[in-house]
C-alpha cells in the first residue's frame, strides 16, 4: 500500500473514531454524574461495576476508540511540529496504540473482574 493510501485511510479512521469517542465521553459523563449524585466511595463503585459485562463492553469500546484515535493525532503533531518522519513516526504511533490498549483494557478488566 502506498504512503498516501495509508494516510488517506488513517484520516477516516481518525474521524470515525472521533465520533465514537464523542458519544463515549457524553455517556461517560452522564453515568458519572448520575452515579455520584449523593457521593460514592471506591468500594461502592466497584460493587456496581464488578461482573457487569455491559459496563465492561462500553469501556472496552471507549479504549478501542482511544487506541485508534490518539496515535494518529499524536503522529500528526510530531510530524508537523517536530519534523519527525518515516520510521520514527510509525514507532510513535505503535507506542501509543499498544500503550493505550494495554493500560486501558487492563483498567477495564480491573473494575469489572470480581
Amino acid at each position: 500500500m502506498t504512503h498516501a493510501e495509508t494516510k488517506r485511510q488513517l484520516w477516516y479512521v481518525q474521524r470515525i473514531s472521533a465520533m465514537v469517542l464523542a458519544c463515549c465521553v457524553v455517556a461517560h459523563l452522564a453515568i458519572m454524574i448520575y452515579a455520584v449524585r449523593g457521593g460514592l466511595s471506591g468500594a461502592e463503585i466497584l460493587a456496581r461495576t464488578q461482573g457487569s459485562w455491559l459496563f465492561g463492553a462500553f469501556y472496552a469500546v471507549f479504549v478501542l476508540g482511544c487506541a485508534a484515535h490518539v496515535p494518529i493525532g499524536v503522529t500528526n503533531i510530531a510530524e508537523e511540529w517536530f519534523g519527525v518522519r518515516g520510521f520514527k513516526s510509525t514507532l510513535i504511533a505503535q507506542l501509543f496504540t499498544w500503550g493505550i490498549l494495554i493500560l486501558g483494557l487492563r483498567a477495564v478488566w480491573g473494575v469489572i473482574a470480581s
Partner: peptide, 11 residues
Amino acid sequence: MKAVAGDAGCH
C-alpha cells in the same frame, strides 16, 4: 484523486 490524497494532499 491519487495525486491529491494523503498527507501531501487534502488529508
